[in-house]
Write a protein that binds this DNA or RNA. Structure first.
Lengths: 233, 233
DNA sequence: GAAACCCATTACATACGACTTATTCAAGAG
DNA sequence: CTCTTGAATAAGTCGTATGTAATGGGTTTC
């Protein structure tokens, strides 16, 4: 998905991005383009393009005569899906999941309220279908299927809000849900209460009940946060 | 601030980014690296680095034999501060301001609630100072000074929330506030009610009143949305 | 005549080497 | 001790050459 083509550029970018996001290169560390070219066995051209991309993500800063310095975490473009993926693959994945879940708890209720007002008939139908799919896969170790419906559900709500900033968080939410499912052991079936909440949320949106949709989404978010508290220190 | 050095790369990137964000290059339009190199009178190397950066922002897609195609708006990384700046400079600035203000109305109340719980003494002091600064500049055509305090105020709240995703929205909020102030005619003094709300919000955070902070921030957001409704169609 | 196959064209992808420029650091002059 | 100056350094820029994949047309085949 991310690596559309196994090009040289993509490979080096991913490797470097992962290293930096994982903290292997602490802030202030300087990288030399020549060294990187040698290390990855690519030309300086490719390295420079990668550096430029990392620079646009504010992960590094390139200055003459000094080299490429890793910037402190607070300056990274943490909303870049690529950066999110790199960080979720690293060691502080729990902290990252918590930050993102708190963000979800702020955004999704408002988005759901807007969705209740603006959702089209097609979106309502799709939402109900996803909720049904979640019910159908909620028992019997079908976590992968459940995850797929869960992701689609939240993406539709964000899209239906009619706000493009919300809509573009669909990828972020997908990463969070996938990360949560794949992180913890997959022996447990999803929380039945959460399934019920999703079904009722689909109803609320269909009926245009903005306040109800917002409240139900808040409950879902609280459940997600609580789940994190239980499973992560 | 953004353009630290008037390098060739930065110049071309800004020019192309602005063009695309402004919609001068509609989605599907193909650009040729050779043409761009000629147009900007730079080498293909520079153009390719720029293209790579635009590609990482999902503004364009580069494919062999076909060229660099502009991607549809829905796929852009609209949380990239650079993209936000480009779009705010373009023609659909009102729409953009509305989207971002709705995002603020979702995020900032929750952030304020968290800030009331986690703010340090220094942050509380700085918040109060900003509120005082807003009061001091709220009359007599001192909009620039008011804006500076307003931006600092919201940035502190987002920082004090302790959530890095919220904290990183400080730049976005700054762009929105600056865009709003510089967009509308600057003859009018800021809304006195908004000033009062900020003062009370600083108090609520200092007293650790999370619910109050959240409610006050919601009121500020409602005011901002209403202001947009009045000034933009 | 339609579908499958092949090949030449095209524009990006990668590489390499030369030169430029800004920045730093240190040595030397005042 | 401060300021100036200059040498060293690593990124910035450029031009060119070659690799590579996707497209479009032409040919073959059934």
């Amino acid at each position: 998905m991310t690596t559309q083509s196994p090009g040289l550029h993509t490979h080096v970018l991913d490797a470097l991005g992962l290293e930096i996001a994982a903290g292997d290169c602490p802030p202030g560390r300087v990288l030399r383009t020549d060294e990187l070219a040698q290390r990855f066995d690519v030309s300086r051209t490719v390295v420079r393009e990668v550096i430029r991309v990392l620079e646009s993500m504010h992960l590094v800063e390139s200055r003459r005569r000094v080299g490429v310095t890793v910037r402190p975490t607070e300056e990274w473009n943490v909303y870049d899906p690529q950066v999110i993926r790199w960080r979720l693959a690293g060691s502080d994945r729990p902290r990252q999941l918590r930050s993102l879940t708190v963000l979800r708890s702020a955004v999704e209720p408002v988005a759901a309220g807007l969705a209740a007002r603006h959702a089209t008939a097609e979106q309502c139908a799709a939402l109900t279908a996803c909720a049904l799919g979640m019910v159908a896969t909620s028992r019997g170790q079908q976590l992968e299927g459940y995850l797929r419906h869960d992701i689609a559900f939240h993406r539709i709500v964000l899209d239906a809000s009619g706000n493009e900033m919300f809509a573009r968080l669909g990828d972020v939410v997908a990463e969070v849900l996938a990360g949560r499912t794949h992180h913890q052991v997959m022996f447990e079936d999803p929380d039945p209460a959460a399934v019920t909440l999703h079904v009722r949320l689909a109803e609320a949106v269909r009926e245009g009940d903005a306040a109800g949709a917002e409240r139900l989404t808040k409950e879902i978010a609280v459940g997600a946060l609580h789940e994190l508290d239980v499973l992560a220190p």
